[in-house]
Simulated scan of single mutants.
Amino acid sequence: MDIQGLDEDGYIAREGSLERVRPEFAPVVDDARERIAAAFGPDRLHGAYLYGSIPRGTALPGVSDLDLLLALHREPTPDDRRAADALEAALDADFPQVDGVGVLLFGTGTLLSELERHDLGWFVACLCTPLLGEDLAGRLPRYRPDSLLARETNGDLALALPRWRERLAAADSDAELTALSRAVSRRLVRTGFTLVMPRWGGWTSDLSVSAEAFAAHYPDHADRMRLAAAVARTPTTDRAVLAALIDGLAPWLAAEYTAVHGEKAPRP
Results as ranks from 00 to 15, higher is better:
1 M>R: 14
2 D>L: 12
4 Q>N: 15
4 Q>V: 15
5 G>P: 13
10 G>K: 01
20 R>G: 06
21 V>A: 06
23 P>Y: 03
25 F>P: 02
26 A>H: 08
27 P>H: 00
27 P>V: 06
28 V>D: 04
30 D>G: 10
31 D>P: 08
32 A>F: 00
32 A>H: 08
35 R>G: 03
41 G>A: 09
43 D>T: 15
45 L>S: 06
45 L>T: 04
47 G>I: 11
48 A>M: 02
49 Y>G: 07
54 I>W: 04
54 I>Y: 03
56 R>L: 13
59 A>L: 00
61 P>H: 00
65 D>S: 10
71 A>T: 06
71 A>Q: 00
72 L>N: 00
75 E>M: 02
78 P>S: 03
78 P>C: 01
80 D>G: 06
81 R>T: 12
82 R>S: 14
84 A>T: 07
86 A>F: 04
87 L>K: 02
87 L>P: 06
88 E>Q: 11
91 L>V: 04
91 L>H: 06
105 L>M: 03
105 L>G: 01
106 F>Q: 09
107 G>A: 11
112 L>V: 04
116 E>R: 04
117 R>F: 00
117 R>C: 01
118 H>A: 12
119 D>G: 11
119 D>S: 15
121 G>L: 08
122 W>T: 11
123 F>D: 02
124 V>W: 05
124 V>A: 03
127 L>M: 12
128 C>W: 02
130 P>D: 08
131 L>S: 12
132 L>P: 10
138 G>D: 02
139 R>T: 05
140 L>E: 05
141 P>S: 07
144 R>I: 05
145 P>V: 04
145 P>W: 07
147 S>T: 14
147 S>C: 15
148 L>S: 09
154 N>C: 15
154 N>W: 13
157 L>T: 09
157 L>R: 01
159 L>R: 15
162 P>W: 08
163 R>H: 12
166 E>Q: 13
170 A>D: 14
181 S>M: 02
182 R>I: 03
183 A>Q: 13
186 R>Y: 12
189 V>C: 05
195 L>S: 14
196 V>L: 07
198 P>M: 14
198 P>Q: 12
201 G>K: 10
203 W>E: 12
206 D>F: 10
207 L>F: 11
208 S>Y: 13
209 V>A: 15
209 V>K: 14
209 V>P: 13
210 S>L: 05
211 A>Q: 03
215 A>L: 01
218 Y>F: 13
224 R>A: 15
225 M>I: 01
226 R>D: 06
229 A>W: 05
233 R>D: 13
233 R>G: 14
236 T>A: 09
236 T>L: 06
238 D>K: 03
238 D>Y: 03
241 V>Y: 03
246 I>Y: 00
248 G>V: 08
253 L>I: 00
256 E>K: 14
261 H>A: 02
265 A>R: 14
266 P>N: 12
